[in-house]
C-alpha cells in the first residue's frame, strides 16, 4: 500500500505537470476561463454585499460572519472539486468501456482514476473563497491564537474531505446508471449554497439531512460557531468541534464503501 501511494503520488505529480503544460498551450482560453470562473464566484460575493445593505444580520450572524461562511464553503467545494477532476468523465469511461483499462493497471482503481486527470483551473473557486475568508477575518478583528488557526485548518480539511467524498460517491453512481449525476449536485453545489448561511435558519428536516446524513452542514457550521465565538441554538457546539474530524472521516468511509459496492457490481456483471 505504501508503495502504491508513492507510485500514485508520482503519477499524480506527472499528470499535474502534463495538465499545466496542456492548459498553457491554450493560454488564451485558459485565462478567459479563469477570469470567467472568478467572475461567477466573485459576483456571488457581490450579491451577498447587496443583501447586507438592507439588513444587519441573518439568523443572528453579521455580514462578515456570513462572508466567512461563504468563503469556507467556496474553499472546501473548490478544493474537493479540484482533487477529484479525474472522476469527471466516469460516465464516459463506463459507457465506452475504457474503464476496463483502469482495472488492468497495477494500482487500485480509485487511486488511478483520481490521478488520471488533473485540472488546475477549478482551483479558482478556492482562491476566491480564501480571499473572502481573509477579508472577513480582518474585519471581525478576532482574538485568535494558534489553536484557532489549527481549528481553521482542521475545518478546511474536514470540509474538503466531505466534498471529495461526495464527488467520489457521485462518480460511483455510474456503476449503476450512466445517466446524468445531477442528483449529487443537490449536496455538492447545493451544499455549498446552503452553508453560505448558518444552518440554524433552515427547518429541522432540511437541517438534519445536511448535519447528519450528508454532513456538509456539520463540518461548516460547528467549527464556525467555535471560531467566531457564536452562541449556538442547536446545542452542537462544545462536543461537535471534537466530533468534526470523526464525522468527516466516517462520511468519507461511507462514500468509499459505496465506491467498493459499485466496483463489486461492475466485476460481477461486467460491461
Amino acid at each position: 500500500m505504501a508503495g502504491d501511494l508513492r507510485v500514485w503520488t508520482r503519477v499524480y505529480g506527472a499528470m499535474l505537470a502534463a495538465s499545466v503544460r496542456e492548459q498553457m498551450s491554450y493560454r488564451g482560453s485558459f485565462v478567459f476561463e479563469l477570469v470567467g470562473r472568478l467572475t461567477v464566484t466573485g459576483l456571488e460575493l457581490v450579491a451577498l454585499f447587496f443583501l447586507f445593505q438592507h439588513i444587519e444580520s441573518i439568523a443572528g450572524w453579521t455580514k462578515w460572519e456570513v462572508v466567512y461562511l461563504y468563503g469556507m464553503a467556496s474553499i472546501c467545494l473548490g478544493m474537493g472539486e479540484a482533487l477529484t477532476t479525474g472522476f469527471d468523465d466516469m460516465p464516459e469511461l463506463i459507457r465506452s468501456g475504457s474503464f476496463d483499462y483502469v482495472l488492468v493497471r497495477p494500482l487500485p482503481a480509485l487511486l488511478f482514476v483520481l490521478g488520471r486527470d488533473v485540472k488546475l483551473r477549478i482551483l479558482g473557486r478556492s482562491l476566491q473563497g480564501a480571499f473572502a475568508v481573509c477579508i472577513s477575518v480582518m474585519h471581525l478583528q478576532l482574538d485568535w491564537d494558534v489553536s484557532h488557526l489549527a481549528l481553521l485548518a482542521t475545518s478546511v480539511i474536514c470540509g474538503v474531505t466531505v466534498y471529495a467524498g461526495l464527488f467520489v460517491a457521485s462518480a460511483a453512481q455510474c456503476f449503476w446508471t450512466v445517466e446524468s449525476t445531477e442528483m449529487f449536485n443537490a449536496f455538492t453545489y447545493g451544499g455549498a449554497q446552503m452553508t453560505e448561511y448558518p444552518v440554524s435558519l433552515y427547518p429541522g428536516w432540511l437541517r438534519s439531512i445536511f448535519l447528519y446524513v450528508v454532513p456538509v452542514g456539520f463540518v461548516s457550521y460547528v467549527p464556525a460557531v467555535a471560531l467566531l465565538g457564536k452562541t449556538d441554538p442547536l446545542g452542537l457546539s462544545p462536543w461537535g468541534v471534537w466530533a468534526t474530524p470523526l464525522v468527516a472521516g466516517t462520511f468519507l468511509g461511507a462514500c468509499l464503501f459505496f465506491w467498493r459496492l459499485g466496483m463489486r457490481r461492475y466485476e460481477g456483471a461486467g460491461g
Binding site: 482560453s29 476561463e33 470567467g36 461567477v40
Partner: peptide, 14 residues
C-alpha cells in the same frame, strides 16, 4: 476564438 469556453464562463458569471 477557437473555443467559446472562456466567454461562456464570463457570461455565466454576469
Amino acid at each position: 476564438l477557437g473555443s467559446e469556453q472562456g466567454v461562456r464562463w464570463l457570461v455565466l458569471g454576469f
